[in-house]
Every structure is written in C-alpha cells, then in structure tokens.
Design a protein around this nucleic acid. Sequence first.
DNA 1: GATAGACTCTGAACCACATGCATTG
DNA 2: CACAATGCATGTGGTTCAGAGTCTA
Length: 367
Amino acid sequence: MGMERGGLKGFRSGWSVPPKPCDSCKLASAALFCRPDAAFLCIACDSKIHCANKLASRHERVWMCEVCEQAPAAVTCKADAAALCVTCDSDIHSANPLARRHDRLPVEPFFDSAEAIVKASTAASFGFLVPTDAAAASSDVFAPDHADADAAAWLIPNPNFGSKLLDAPDIKSKEIFFSEMEPFLDFDYSNSFQNNNSSSTANDSVVPVQSKPCFTPPLMNNHQSENCFDIDFCRSKLSSFNYPSQSLSQSVSSSSVDVGVVPDGNTVSEISYSFGRDSSGMATQLCGMDREARVLRYREKRKNRKFEKTIRYASRKAYAETRPRIKGRFAKRAEIDSDVVDRLYSPAAAAAAALMLDTPYGVVPSF
DNA sequence: GATAGACTCTGAACCACATGCATTG
DNA sequence: CACAATGCATGTGGTTCAGAGTCTA
C-alpha cells in the first residue's frame, strides 16, 4: 500500500528555494562550504580566499548538497549518485524502505582550489570520456558511441574519473576503467537473484524487480568500513553513527534482490577509486565538470526516477491478483458470492459467474 | 498581466485475508 | 534444544478521490 509512493515528496519542496548565496560576494550561489571558516562560497570567491596564502589553502572544503543547495554535502549516496546534506539525506532516505537501503558514505573534503578542480575535470571530460546514447543517458550508464561533446560533459558522472585517468601513464588505465565498469553497464540482476535467492522459500519466493540500475560511479572514496558516521559540517571525520553498522544494501540477503534499484554495495566497491587520496593532491570527490550541469542532471534524474514497487512476497502478490474486488478494494468472499448469485439471474452473466465460482479464489475482475 | 475555470497529474487511502514471524507451551 | 500451536502484523493490487500543478480563455 503506497509503500514506495511519495518517496520524492519530502524533498521536492527544497527545489523551489533558491540556492544559497555566497557568503563572500553575495552575488553568486554558493558552490562549496569551507569548514574552518564555516562559510558558504562560490567558486570564484573560494579561489580568491583559499589561494591567498598557504594556511587558507589547507582549509577543508566540501561541495554543496546537490538537492537543496542550502547546506554542505554530508554524505554521498551511491544509489542516487549524489552528494546530499544531512537534511536531504534524511528526507530522501527515510521516505520509503527502498530508499533506506541506499548505501551512503561520508563526503570527503577537498583542499585544492575548486576552480582548478572544475577546470581539470572539465578538460578531462572532454579528453576521452564519451557520452552515451539517449537511452543510456537516462540511466547514467556510459556508452562509447556518441559524439556530442556537450552531452559528454553533461553525462560525466564523476569528473574525478576522467581527470584521474588522464593522469594515468598509459591507455591501459583507461581500458581498466571501462573494463571495470562493464559489470555496471550490463548489470544483471538475475545473476544476483540466482545467487542470493537460495534462502527463499519455495512458495514465497521473492520477485525481482526489473528496474534499470541507475548507476553513476561513486563520487568519492568508498570506505567499506565507514558506513556509519555522524554528520558535522565543520568536521572532516565522520564518526559513528546514524546508520546501521552494516548498510542494508549489503546485509540483506534474499530480500535484497527484489529492490533492484540499489546496486549492491560490494559490487560498487569493486570499482571504487581512491581519487580523494591521490598522492598528487588531486582533489577529492566532486572535482569535475560544470557543477551546474551536474545539479541539473541530478534534478532531471530525480524527476524521472520511478521507484519500482518492491514485491517481497510473490505468493501474496499472486493471491492479491486473484482476489475479488469491488471498485478496486478487496471484497469479502461472501459478499462476492452473494453478488454473483444475484447476477446469475442475468443469463448473459451466468457463464462468467460460473467460471468465477469454479476457480479456487473466485476471480472477479471488476464491477 | 491577473484571474478563474478546466484539465492533468500524482500520491494516499481503502479494502480482505493468506502469509510470515514471533511468542508460548 | 526442537517442535507444534497460536496470534498478530504485514503485504498485496485496482480503483477512487483529493490536492497540486498546468494550461487556456
């Protein structure tokens, strides 16, 4: 009953609020949050302030929440491929059981100039990453056969990937990148279903949802051991906890496969890259393409997202489908039977009614 | 441009009852 | 500890309705 419905309800309202202005210039919208200064800054002001001296350049900064753009991002949701603030994270991921299973990780701060990060990653995005076709674009999946450069930049899930890979000494790194991405390009839930479904009962097997995996590479490091954390705008270290010590997306067994929306955390970890810890000082998570485009992309994706209904008990589903209804509501069998008897007076309905009475559950399509 | 009415879209609620699961003996 | 009996909460889908949003005059 309306279980997955309303998943977006809670945070839609936030979109109507204009982005938080830069605390420095008050003109541009803030793109990041400086923890030591406790200030929201646009990219230009960040460059001015944090390039001024060595001390300032060591300030920890994080990008703004991609949804509300009102607070610093605190976590990265792998399923949504988005950096979210505490409030949005709470709103979105408490909306329904499905969302609660999203694997979230604490955002890693960066120290480089945001402008440099954006430039580097934008260049990288035009360097070799190629965009997708329209269908793949809707699900944020890479595909190597599209030529439009703008779309390419628009679709780059994590610019860090590009910039990092461009730094790779040879093309093999890039090949590795794509080869490791392949499991997601053709993410096949049937496999995981077969693997995980052994514990299901024979009659009440879980029905896998055939939803397209909406995958975007993680925006940051994936620390499998750090799934629990606390949120503090001014702290880089996120300690336990708000979340279960083991994320649900990892811990659920047979019932996990019915979700379909949330990629398995372990699988994601296989392609996680430690860009944030790059020895060259390469910025962490969200360096990358034009941030505005990313926000637009994210919003568009959220708008188009459909939370697939989760069927946990196939037997119940099967039974519900056969149950008699009156105006869509489940009806008592006695009620239906008497009604059917009444209808038997109609010769035209006699055959259909007889058929219904023959079935074990009395299938009554509609009234 | 402002307003009202028509239209569209979205999500919540409703219903009965087999089933799953925790508790008890 | 293993098992059976019991009772309660849960989950299931089609339809309706209300409210919000959009379009048109």
